[in-house]
């Protein structure tokens, strides 16, 4: 995944590349523009610049196809149907199981889910789309350590299996056992430092 002079809302242009299956952690104080960076890559806010993924240009395809490809997981998950299962036709049951859910979760009401359950189910909902990249906004923030490890392992396995480059916004130390990792520090909308193991 390559960002070419991508300029998020309220930010400065950024250019860098994340190779397949690698993770770039995005860190920085609150308000540094971490989430806005992910939103810009997913093309949710007006932004400038170009993003490439698997040799495909963002501007060369309809926005909804692009978003399905880049797999953005917002920090807070939203649900528009009453029942979990109604949100899409296909739910990979093995993935639900690895997240600690049985198939009956599809019959649950969204309103009775805890924040952590919502977050894990949002990951399942996202991965069911088979995105080619992952943009994760604090995916383990509301999880206990068991579930945080589960989620990190699932993300890692997905990256390996699909060669998905990943941007991972994180407040704490970067999680996961990614063998190929880098860190981007943001400060007031601009890249303060970029450390990567790949360049």
């Amino acid at each position: 995944m390559k960002l070419e002079r991508l300029r998020p809302l309220l930010g400065e242009p950024l250019s860098f590349e994340v190779p397949p299956a690698c993770t770039c952690f995005v860190r920085g104080p609150s308000g540094a523009g971490k989430s806005l960076l992910l939103r810009a890559v997913a093309d949710l806010d007006p932004n400038e610049g170009e993003v490439w993924l698997d040799g495909l240009r963002r501007s060369g395809m309809p926005a909804h196809r692009w978003r399905r490809m880049v797999g953005y997981l917002p920090a807070e998950s939203y649900w528009w149907e009453d029942r979990v299962g109604d949100h899409q036709a296909h739910w990979p049951l093995s993935l639900l199981e690895r997240l600690g859910f049985g198939a009956e979760v599809l019959d649950w009401r969204v309103s009775r889910l805890s924040t952590g359950e919502r977050q894990r189910l949002a990951l399942a909902r996202l991965l069911a789309n088979r995105p080619a990249a992952l943009l994760l906004d604090e995916p383990v923030a509301n999880l206990d350590s068991v579930n945080a490890d589960r989620v990190a392992a699932i993300v890692h396995a997905y990256q390996q299996e699909h060669g998905a480059p990943t941007l991972w916004v994180s407040h704490g130390e970067g999680r996961g056992n990614a063998s190929c990792r880098g860190t981007l520090w943001l400060q007031a909308g601009r890249a303060a430092k970029l450390e990567t193991a790949w360049s």
Partner: peptide, 22 residues
Amino acid sequence: DQRGRIEARLVLGHSWQEAISE
């Protein structure tokens, strides 16, 4: 009011018509 829900659908690859249909 439902900004989050609409964007949740956009993020999952729904078209704008689907996201606003209800």
